[in-house]
Amino acid sequence: MANVSKRYRGGGGVEGVTLDIWPGEVFGFLGPNGAGKTTTIRLLLDLIRPDRGTITLVGLDSRRDSVAARRRIGYLPGELALYDRMTPRELLTHFAYLRGGPPWSEIDRLAAQFTLELDRPIRELSKGNRQKVGLVQALMGRPEVLVLDEPTSGLDPIVQHQVHRAIRDAADGGRTVFLSSHVLSEVAQVADRVGLIRDGRVIAVERVQDLRGRAAHVVDARFAAPLPPGAFAGLPGVEGRQVAGDTLHLEVTGALAPVVGELARFDVVDLTVREPDLEELFLAFYESADAAA
């Protein structure tokens, strides 16, 4: 999508969003609630129309070739509303017909995979089970593009795991997944790249791998004796250095070897080295974006 804008009269919307999603990747779309994730997704589906900009999906214009484009997209809305009086079987049959025919055997297989009960009215289903109905209708027919808005919200961890696996399977099979979430750990687990949206603007697009690579290690150590002043100063890659008596706190980017070498010169009582999770990285990102603003 190129330079897409959509403003609502009451405020909100997105501004100048440009995203390139590659075939076969899982793209995580991350941002707090109200940042414009759902607006972006509803633009993709031609449910709402951009004020400016164009959206191209599998080579098709989202406006002009809307029906053809939607034939190749499976969509799970964030605020999932279904026909409550129908059973999942009726709803899935209805949509299968509108989609021009994934065979029932495939729907059965998906329903079994998610242990979805097909013959109870949807209004009697729990939120998790409704979400499964939404997932099955998005996945059926193996669409080339999956657009999933907060797919795991309200699901128990076991089903969340199943969903993540289904997403990975889809991507491994060459399909493209656009996944929105406000949960960083989820995106970190399944996405190849992450786009960060805030106040309607995409402020960063990064490969998850690169984010990890750039991540600082946090080293905490305690020593048998207080450290001499100046210890661990000036080592390559060391950023946040705090020394207080016999304890040490370091943030290290890049290779750890120099720090490990230095540690060996002291009597180490306790040592932890950890990778900060994406949560911390993005929070840092947000803070710097705030500072710039």
């Binding site: 589906l45 449910l47 809305p77 605020e79 999932l80 509303a81 509108l98």
Partner: peptide
């Protein structure tokens, strides 16, 4: 108003 328009119009129908 009920929000079902999203799943309906995600199908390839005009």
């Amino acid at each position: 108003e009920r929000g079902t328009i999203d799943v309906l119009m995600a199908n390839p129908v005009s």
